[in-house]
Amino acid sequence: MSYILVLYYSQHGATKKLAERIAMGIESENLEARVRTVSTEHPSVHHSVVSEQDLEQCIGLALGSPTRFGQMAWRLQKFMQNTSAQWLKGVLEDKPAIVFTSSSSMHGGQESTLLSMALPLLHHGMLLSGIPYSAPELHQTTTGGSPYGASHVVQNEYADKLSDDEKKLAFESGKRLARLARKLKE
């Protein structure tokens, strides 16, 4: 069965919430979303650890991490740096991908984190997709979301939940990824 891998690392649960919303968008397009993590060390994580097979057999990838000084978290970075075998085999070439992140402040480096996650995907030959400005939530959000990818800002009333705009942007990102994966697979 064809599936899209939603791979993330989450320390406090915010990135996990984005991953689950993206998975809902994928599944709304009648594709399986296989949600995996690189670490289960935190109690908020209830997903399996990613395997090489998960990565090699997916038809698309959503990659997410919390923002750490404008970069992806080291656990996700370490995982990506250990994908040389997949890179040599070209298993991710020509597959679509999106990136997503969360941070604890509005100007905490979300866009640079999204770009840092995009770099290894480009080396793998993946086809990156962002969020087009036709998404009305990009024009109205006062929390997370950018043309580079879905995001969440952990602040004020949104400390423990995604804002409506963040939910919609993450869901639509998943839908878009699923549609691209289906078209490319055809």
Rank of each mutant, 00 (worst) to 15 (best):
F79D: 04
L114H: 14
Y9D: 12
E172Y: 06
D94W: 06
P147D: 15
K168R: 11
G149T: 15
S146P: 12
G64M: 09
P132L: 01
V38S: 03
G90M: 03
E93L: 01
F69H: 09
T101H: 01
Y8N: 11
L18T: 02
S51I: 08
Q86V: 14
R182I: 13
L114R: 13
P147I: 14
D94K: 11
E157S: 05
K78W: 04
L114E: 14
A19S: 14
R75G: 04
S10E: 03
M126K: 09
S65I: 15
V49K: 05
H139F: 10
L184Q: 11
A97P: 08
L88G: 00
C58T: 03
Y8W: 13
S103T: 01
V99C: 11
E20P: 14
Y3F: 14
I131Q: 02
H47D: 08
R21W: 11
L180T: 03
Y9M: 10
P66K: 11
G149Q: 13
T101G: 00
A85Y: 03
V45D: 09
I131A: 06
H152R: 10
G149Y: 12
M117E: 12
A159P: 01
L31Q: 08
S65Q: 12
H42A: 03
P43V: 02
H46G: 05
Q110R: 07
S146F: 15
L115E: 09
G108Q: 08
S44M: 03
E27C: 13
L180P: 03
Q77L: 06
M117V: 14
G125M: 15
S2L: 13
W87E: 12
E41D: 01
T15P: 12
Y3T: 11
Q53W: 10
E111T: 01
A150P: 06
G125K: 10
H46Q: 03
S84E: 08
P120V: 06
L162E: 07
V50N: 10
I22H: 00
M1S: 15
N30R: 01
S65T: 15
L18W: 03
A33I: 01
E93A: 02
D164N: 08
F79R: 00
S48C: 05
W87T: 08
R179N: 14
L169R: 02
V49N: 02
Q53I: 08
L61I: 13
L5D: 06
G144M: 09
I26M: 08
Y8S: 10
A159L: 06
A97V: 08
R68A: 02
H139L: 14
A178R: 07
E157F: 05
Y133C: 09
W87H: 13
V153Y: 11
E32I: 02
L55I: 15
